[in-house]
Design a binder for these strands. Sequence first.
DNA 1: GTATTGAATTAGACAAAACTAATTACTTAT
DNA 2: ATAAGTAATTAGTTTTGTCTAATTCAATAC
Lengths: 219, 219
Amino acid sequence: MKKTYSEENYLKTIYHISKSESKVSLKAIADVLENNPASVIDMLRKLKEKELITYDKTQGAILTVTGETVALDIIRKHRLWEVFLVEKLNYDWHEVHHIAEQLEHIHDEQLAKKLDDFLGNPAFDPHGDPIPASNGQMPVYANKRLSELKINQAGKVGSVRDTSTPFLKYLKQLNLGLGSKIEVIDKLDFDQSMVIVIDGSAPKTVSSKMTDNILLIID
Amino acid sequence: MKKTYSEENYLKTIYHISKSESKVSLKAIADVLENNPASVIDMLRKLKEKELITYDKTQGAILTVTGETVALDIIRKHRLWEVFLVEKLNYDWHEVHHIAEQLEHIHDEQLAKKLDDFLGNPAFDPHGDPIPASNGQMPVYANKRLSELKINQAGKVGSVRDTSTPFLKYLKQLNLGLGSKIEVIDKLDFDQSMVIVIDGSAPKTVSSKMTDNILLIID
DNA sequence: GTATTGAATTAGACAAAACTAATTACTTAT
DNA sequence: ATAAGTAATTAGTTTTGTCTAATTCAATAC
Ligand SMILES: [Mn+2]
Ligand SMILES: [Mn+2]
Ligand SMILES: [Mn+2]
Ligand SMILES: [Mn+2]
């Protein structure tokens, strides 16, 4: 059965939340989608009806196998399109999210496969996030948050957890991108802010909100 | 103001009908979109309200300048995406229409321009239809229908008027594509069917429905 | 000129996806 | 244990875009 634009967005959101929270609450979904909780509960009941999720107040929303398949398919398309926009159309990485948000809903049997081949079967999207395989396997990479590093540790930027335009613009301004080397020079106890060196340039101070959203590959 | 998916489809349809009929009747729109006339009249009133068209029973629907701009923008995107799908993703020309039908509604300031550049600023889509410029200028080419040719006249296929899958499949089967040379060997008086030679191969008989939908460039 | 047909229009209904406002159910903090 | 605050839920609306069925209008056909 064909899924609507909106159903697909809900499934995707539930998937994402489930990766960082132990319970996918109604409130969390409402926050991410910027929808009213009353709207959200209606949709959850609809998705439950279609057996794409289970839901109850205490357990929260949980994707069924079918539901997860749909979610991963949307995420796959989203990330492939992001690669296309950056690699082929020369968009900046902070500009592509809202376009991929639309493109991920284009329906066609062959499209994802053909696009994937055209792009050379990329493993990561422009934000460093892994692209699920067509069979729905999501590769996992053991990355560490910058905020978890201790003084004098170092790593290479593998991905970012926040893909909002303001955050990505801030990173650009810091001259920080995927692959940048980061060394922790100092970490302040009182607010967890860090002094870091990016690719050997002058040390800069960054907040814990920033360091929480950078994922590093540790050598 | 942002236009909805549906509004865009109506404007595009009105544009297309206006190119082949002197009056864009409610009935004609309903037929093309396969919508009920009652639905169509509602939408026409809405488009009139927004000053994208004028409409009354006798005149039919007529695009305003703003309405035509929107229509041409959608058509431009539709045809650019078709080029992308055929040239870059290796789709067959008969497979791309329903995907472009979705892609044409992706909204982004820079997208059409970037896509156009990436594709090398093509002048025609895979069906031979001209791609409107970004300023909304639609290039016009003086093509003649195959059905208008007389015996012994010849021409090169410039575009097709029907882009339905059955028609395009039929053309493929005939080994007929854009650029194919067609010579008229015979024309039957009673049903206007023709005997033609395609690129020098064995003569074939085709119906008037077929010859009405092939546009030729005459040498 | 009246009958028949087809086109345009009206009225009322419906599904999808959102909303507001009010209510109920849980969790904390005092 | 009670009050306060947060989360979940209900009830009732709204907007968008569609539909069916009934009606009116207009163009032939005889
Ligand atoms: Mn989306
Ligand atoms: Mn991404
Ligand atoms: Mn369309
Ligand atoms: Mn086309």
